[in-house]
Design a protein around this nucleic acid. Structure first.
Lengths: 246, 246
DNA sequence: CCTAAAGGTGCCAAAATATGGCACCTTTTA
DNA sequence: TAAAAGGTGCCATATTTTGGCACCTTTAGG
């Protein structure tokens, strides 16, 4: 097996298996342990975040936010691809999804460092949970397509965003808030923001947001968003016992 | 200078200079002429269209339509991404799927011309419908991951493919057929092929196919596959990205 | 016609790089 | 304590790449 093939195989395997051992990777690639170790070092040099755990029950794991793309793809675009593939795998897996993973791995390798950093930060503010039973979703509307880029810009640059918000009764208010997180309770998508006017966190349903725009205003600081037990971060869906320091 | 660095230098130089000579590339890279020649051959293998002129006043030139694909995706990989996004849209649409579409459009445009042609042909043989009510899917098994590349090779090159087929009773027969289309009736995937031995079209469930392989045999011609009303072609369902003109 | 300027291929020795095995280290768990 | 893990350095061997050479073809100019 060629070296570049082997690298792709390793990434693909790590992506599909949340935790694995070097021994498994040796079997998968047909290479010696020493070679696989070198491959992993090389992949780390290329920017893949591969965490490891020493000792019994240990192994290696690819950080789920390890993604790259072609330089011409915008971060929200890659984000949308990632979410789509992950959602599809969670609901009704498509045959040959390993090929989609392989494509994502290759896109991953081509991401410039600054965009990779942005995407990683973006994925870290994404939370997923389940909608409480009985929640009314009868008036679920479309989401303004400019909302995600606006959120991204505000979040990454730490500048406030503004929008008109319609509550359940259709009453519209104008808001200027500090975007802190995104929350998906399928099929509802929320923006979680710090509202300075109310001195607290607010959840805004994305389908009730109109005319989103980045605002001039002082840079805000990021805050830890308190969620209840049923909500997990996208990057924390797999427990990470050891954080590798590069 | 490392090999990969040299490749980037060559491409960059060719982009900036519409016509150049090997001698100039040798100076630019510091490598021997023989090495630069190999590099060019290698770049051609990677999909760059590098034209050359022999003789006085000759040289090499990068075809302007030869867009550099920093992520070199295989056609089945792009296919898998496309299908994933389309399937997700059909079941439970993700917000911002327009962004995923946009990303895919950019990826498609970044494909070399021959691969783009292959992908288009591939997508044109894909059909989607709904499973008739009451169809038994209780024995749905896994699909051999080599099947899609085998189908692709057979379909694009118009050469027969062979496989072992298990029918509903588990009876295995060996088949050699002409692949004509793929049919998705979620969650079942079918290969639709012309079976010369039976002088007709046959539908083969992908999860009942084993040991797929491309066969030696005469090139076959493509046929129009008759489907009933509930089946639509993929390209009729999904708007295609605008084709970039040279 | 000849010569020079071009791209191109095959071959081989030398150089460079990758691989695998080994020894040894550290950490974690049963 | 032993086994299961990831990890590093080193070295002989294997593999790949490079550069030089010979030879080929094509084109343009003298």
């Amino acid at each position: 097996m060629q070296r570049s093939e082997r690298h792709e195989t390793i990434i693909r395997y790590l992506r599909r298996n949340h935790g694995t051992t070097l021994q498994a990777l040796c079997s998968e690639t047909g290479a010696a342990r020493r070679t696989v170790l070198r491959d992993i070092a090389s992949l780390r040099d290329q920017g893949f975040i591969i965490q490891s755990e020493v000792g019994r029950g240990g192994g290696v794991r690819l950080d789920p936010s390890s993604v790259q793309t072609t330089a011409r793809l915008a971060v929200p675009e890659v984000f949308a691809l990632l979410i789509t593939v992950a959602a599809q795998r969670a609901t009704q897996p498509i045959p040959f999804s390993d090929l989609a993973d392989s494509a994502l791995a290759k896109i991953e390798r081509a991401l410039p460092t600054d965009k990779l950093r942005d995407l990683r930060a973006f994925l870290e503010c994404l939370y997923i949970g389940e909608l409480p039973a009985g929640q009314d979703i009868s008036q679920l509307g479309p989401i303004d397509p400019t909302l995600l880029p606006v959120f991204e810009a505000g979040f990454l640059n730490q500048t406030p965003i503004g929008f008109d918000y319609r509550d359940a009764k259709g009453h519209v208010t104008s808001r200027t808030v500090e975007p802190q997180a995104m929350l998906i309770l399928p099929p509802l998508w929320y923006i979680v923001a710090w509202d300075p006017a109310r001195d607290g966190f607010r959840h805004f349903r994305m389908d009730r947001i109109d005319a989103p725009a980045v605002c001039d205003g002082p840079r805000f600081r990021r805050r830890h968003v308190p969620f209840n037990r049923n909500v997990q971060s996208y990057t924390g869906l797999v427990p990470q016992p050891a954080v590798q320091t590069d």
